[in-house]
Amino acid sequence: MAPAPARATLVVFDLDGTLLDTHSDLVESLNHTIAALGLEPVSYDDLTHLVGQGARVMIERACRLRGHPLEADALPPLVERFVAHYAGNMPGRTEPYPGLVAAMDRLSSAGYRLAVCTNKMESLALGLIDKLDLTQYFDAITGGDTFEYRKPDARHLTGTVDRAGGDIARTVMIGDSINDIAVAKNAGVPSIAVPFGYSDVPVSSLDPDQIIMHFDELTPELVERLLREFATKVAV
């Protein structure tokens, strides 16, 4: 029997604050949502403390920030209001970060597979990526409700890797916040942090394996070096 073909090297991206600059549309839809409660709007400066765990948690945090903690039964209609506004205005002012598309072209041309692992609702992630005509780049796109678990639970990342036909031993995770770096650590893969997203602390304090300041730095050579160095570190 012929040996099974080797599984492809996989580069997995977070979405908000990593692949896409979504801040304007998140703030707009969040403020539309909490306006139903008569609450003062939030700003971009608040966003770093609100995002990262999906729409439900973002709404809860925004309400708490404005001194209006929610009862459990008050949340579902607010989530519906947020989703309707956000989905109805896609892609809005959201756009890929500079250099992203060129970086994905480099990686794809070198034979790498690409995937998205985000805590955003899967339907919103799929819709947004499609509206921006980026779907063709990805072998898997998983959201915060794709599985029964989400970042930083390792199974969110390993499930994404499986869906993309990747190999966890040949996977790199790229993100902008603690959930991304933590899920990489929990799954045993190297991480790349970007400093231009929504982290509420300097990404250097999250102890990623690499920080890139611009997607021009994301090359096959960088991915291979990280995989080699990580494998060596694990073996020691």
Rank of each mutant, 00 (worst) to 15 (best):
D25H: 07
D176F: 10
L114Y: 03
T219W: 03
Y97F: 15
D216F: 02
L20N: 02
F196E: 06
T171W: 03
A2N: 14
Y97T: 03
A102S: 14
M104P: 02
A140H: 03
R66M: 12
V203L: 09
A74I: 01
H49C: 05
A193N: 09
T219V: 07
G166L: 08
F13V: 05
E122K: 10
A110D: 10
G67K: 11
R170F: 02
L26N: 05
S204K: 13
T18R: 07
C63A: 10
S24L: 15
T160C: 15
E80F: 02
I178A: 15
P41R: 09
D200A: 14
L65I: 05
Q136V: 03
V161Q: 02
T171Q: 06
D180C: 11
E60R: 15
P152G: 12
E217G: 01
L19I: 06
V203M: 08
E60Y: 00
G54D: 01
P3I: 10
H23I: 13
T232I: 13
E40M: 12
T160P: 00
F215Q: 01
I168S: 10
A72K: 14
D139E: 15
E122S: 10
D145L: 07
D145A: 04
E28S: 15
S43R: 11
Y149R: 12
L222G: 04
L157H: 00
L10K: 05
Q136K: 14
K120Q: 04
P208G: 07
L226I: 02
M90G: 00
D162I: 12
E40H: 12
V83G: 00
R113I: 05
M173C: 08
V201C: 11
D176N: 05
P220S: 11
M121N: 07
V12D: 02
I34A: 11
H156R: 05
Y44I: 14
L107S: 09
T94K: 08
V101E: 14
F13S: 05
P152F: 08
T160I: 00
L126F: 09
F147K: 04
A103N: 05
D105K: 13
Y149C: 14
F138Y: 10
D207R: 15
